[in-house]
């Protein structure tokens, strides 16, 4: 494939693949930009670049992942996502059939999420300078009236809710990439969470924080919010849902599921008096069926996140500088 520098081949690619897959008036107009009407109130934008190896994995592929990831970032402001743009960096020689699969998957994900992909771009880099395909997506959404969700709003006493099992995505990717088998196959949890978020903010507008624990896992997300809000957190291991295969895989691999990536889970922080109600709302939604209250926000000027382990006793859930470095001396 030699598309890319604005020549004919590139136009052909856009037309053939994207236009057909994402089909909408904005793309059909073939302008270099998309115009859309804005509503009153607050809008949000989020952008995310997606790099994943392997590109196709149980539960999804880089295409739907790049849609879900950005929709989720928009949704974590409590917003309804409306539009997406997509930028592709393709490695020379990348099979067109694979690209078609990816684009079709993106389109299906966008359609299912009721979000239009309204602009896009493609560049091709020399062989060896990319890893098949990288996709950057940008999302635009609107925040409903009365919703103020932000990572700095966690307050002591607030409850911490988790929408479902953790570690599925990371383990799915790793087991495929390294050809590891842990009994039954673990599928990635990649999913668009805005539908779940919509019911949550509708039923419980007073949610303080929402975040999707992607890279770095639940541990990193909780530490980020703790830092941002200037609070500490005390969570319990017992209610945190982990699939048994994921748990076993993590044990074998020496990984802590708290630090393993997710692509279809969210953490919600809300005042204690609405926590049970929020939990019920989450559980009523298919993407929150395994939701649980996993702990609470505490006053702690060290911003520590600590966990009561399943055996009793407490251990820190620290943020990490990089990879988990061995430390047992």
């Amino acid at each position: 494939m030699t598309h890319g520098s604005g020549g004919r081949a590139s136009a052909q690619l856009v037309e053939e693949l994207f236009l057909r897959a994402f089909d909408n008036d904005w793309l059909r107009s073939l302008n270099d930009q998309a115009c859309f009407l804005v509503s009153s109130g607050r809008m949000v934008a989020a952008t995310d670049s997606h790099v994943v190896s392997p590109l196709f994995f149980p539960g999804g592929d880089i295409g739907c992942l790049s849609v879900h990831g950005t929709i989720n970032d928009v949704a974590m402001a409590g917003a309804k996502p409306l539009y997406l743009t997509a930028g592709f960096i393709l490695e020379e020689g990348f099979p067109l059939s694979d690209l078609r699969r990816i684009v079709d998957s993106m389109a299906a994900a966008a359609r299912e999420a009721d979000v239009a992909v309204i602009a896009g771009d493609t560049k091709v880099v020399e062989q060896g300078k990319g890893d098949g395909v990288f996709i950057t997506t940008t999302g635009i959404g609107v925040v409903p009236e009365g919703v103020h969700i932000s990572g700095d709003r966690a307050r002591p006493g607030d409850r911490i809710l988790l929408s479902g099992t953790i570690g599925d995505h990371g383990v799915a990717i790793m087991s495929l990439r390294e050809d590891l088998r842990f009994g039954t196959t673990v599928a990635s949890d990649t999913a668009a969470l805005h539908g779940l978020v919509a019911t949550m903010v509708e039923m419980v507008p007073d949610i303080h924080c929402l975040r999707d624990p992607t890279r770095g896992g639940l541990a990193t997300t909780l530490n980020e919010i703790a830092q941002q809000s200037g609070v500490g957190m005390r969570i319990r291991e017992a209610p945190i849902p982990v699939l048994s295969q994921v748990k076993a895989a993590c044990e074998f691999l020496g990984l802590d599921p708290l630090y393993v990536a997710n692509e279809g889970k969210l953490v919600a922080i809300c005042p204690p008096e609405v926590a049970e109600r929020l939990l019920a709302v989450m559980r009523a939604h298919p993407l929150g069926a395994d939701a649980a209250i996993i702990g609470e926000v505490v006053d702690d000027n060290h911003h520590f996140v600590e966990m009561e382990t399943a055996f009793g006793g407490w251990r820190m859930v620290d943020w990490l500088t990089g990879e988990q470095l061995p430390r047992i001396c």
């Binding site: 390294e178 590891l180 088998r181 895989a249 074998f252 691999l253």
Partner: peptide, 15 residues
């Protein structure tokens, strides 16, 4: 359980 995984981890240098 897991010996196979560990063998594989050693072969491929996984964690």
């Amino acid at each position: 359980e897991g010996a196979e995984v560990v063998a594989r981890m050693l072969e491929r240098g996984i964690n």
